[in-house]
Computed example of a mutant assay.
Amino acid sequence: MELVTLDDIRAAADRIRGVAVRTPLVRMGPPDMEGVWVKPESLQPIGAFKIRGAYNAVASLRPGGVVTHSSGNHGQALAYAAKEFGVPCVVVVPEGAPQVKVAAIEGWGAEIVIVPPEKREAVAEEVARERGLTLVPPYDHPAVIAGQGTVGVEIVEDLPDVETVLVPVGGGGLASGVGAAVKALRPEARVIGVEPELAADAAESLAAGHPVEWGPARTFRTIADGLRTGLSDLTFAHISRWIDGIVTVSEDEIRAAMGRLARSARLVAEPSGAVTTAALMSGRVPAGRTVAVLSGGNVDPELLRQVI
């Protein structure tokens, strides 16, 4: 299986320049976070890193219309990109997706189709066939992975002596791209994936040596809605090659990390975006100069109020 290269990621960086924000590294600070930086992808136009991969896919494929399946952030990103290129967009959303994200997808002009979680991929493929639209999946596409990899390039450019990069793992597109970029530019750095204990299919997959499917009945227990999807063959191949290990965190640890980011770093994080900080707070990550990727900040206001 052909993996995304640094050249692919650099080409993606050229396409998304001026659209995706080049997010800064923000220090977490003492007493227990010395030598830790957060990369807040919550500052992107749609509030999450997904704009990188979705825009790169549309810019490189130039489709006449697009469709995807998404719990929220990729749907927003693809709707944003489709609007920029003047093409229609349909987003198949699983029941139970956060309303704040569904409303944002509609706000960018996309058509919403709500289905049971286990049917989202099949319905998206059906819509693509029936309407002649191009399917742009949330993570299972080289152009999407290459776009997400620009996060890794920016990290190494801004912190050349980085020792550890922590990245959330859901479908694996972000971890695949970041792993490919960081290992190409700084092979000695560790790239560690982080996922919820209640959706720890990536950890099990790496241990088994092949993708293991947990299914919505298990993964939808976690509040980290952006990490409820499993690895594809493509993302598993990348993660197997580039990721040094997986750390899992509890629901209470995720909530605590959301609160810590808001109070100490003045950053709003959705549960999926807070898992990397949760891993740091747990003490289960090697010490050293570390960057935690905060993947998104599209959080339900009531949940944010609770954790703060």
Rank of each mutant, 00 (worst) to 15 (best):
188 E>H: 13
38 V>C: 13
74 H>R: 04
22 R>Q: 11
125 E>K: 14
31 P>M: 09
61 L>Q: 11
71 S>Q: 04
307 V>S: 03
102 V>I: 15
301 P>E: 10
68 T>Q: 04
288 G>A: 07
53 G>A: 08
229 T>C: 14
146 A>M: 07
54 A>V: 02
296 G>N: 11
15 R>W: 11
154 E>V: 00
62 R>G: 05
178 V>Y: 00
148 Q>L: 01
148 Q>A: 12
89 C>V: 09
49 F>V: 00
14 D>H: 12
35 G>N: 12
139 Y>Q: 03
184 A>T: 05
266 R>V: 09
179 G>C: 07
37 W>P: 09
114 I>F: 02
182 V>A: 03
49 F>P: 01
281 M>D: 08
116 P>M: 08
13 A>Y: 06
4 V>A: 09
90 V>D: 08
186 R>Q: 10
189 A>V: 11
134 T>Y: 05
101 K>C: 12
78 L>T: 07
109 G>P: 09
69 H>S: 14
149 G>S: 09
49 F>T: 01
105 I>P: 13
45 P>G: 09
66 V>S: 02
214 W>T: 04
5 T>D: 13
220 F>M: 14
302 E>S: 15
12 A>H: 11
149 G>Y: 02
90 V>H: 06
185 L>M: 15
75 G>Q: 06
66 V>H: 03
279 A>H: 06
282 S>V: 02
34 E>K: 11
58 V>N: 00
273 G>D: 07
46 I>Y: 02
170 G>F: 00
45 P>W: 03
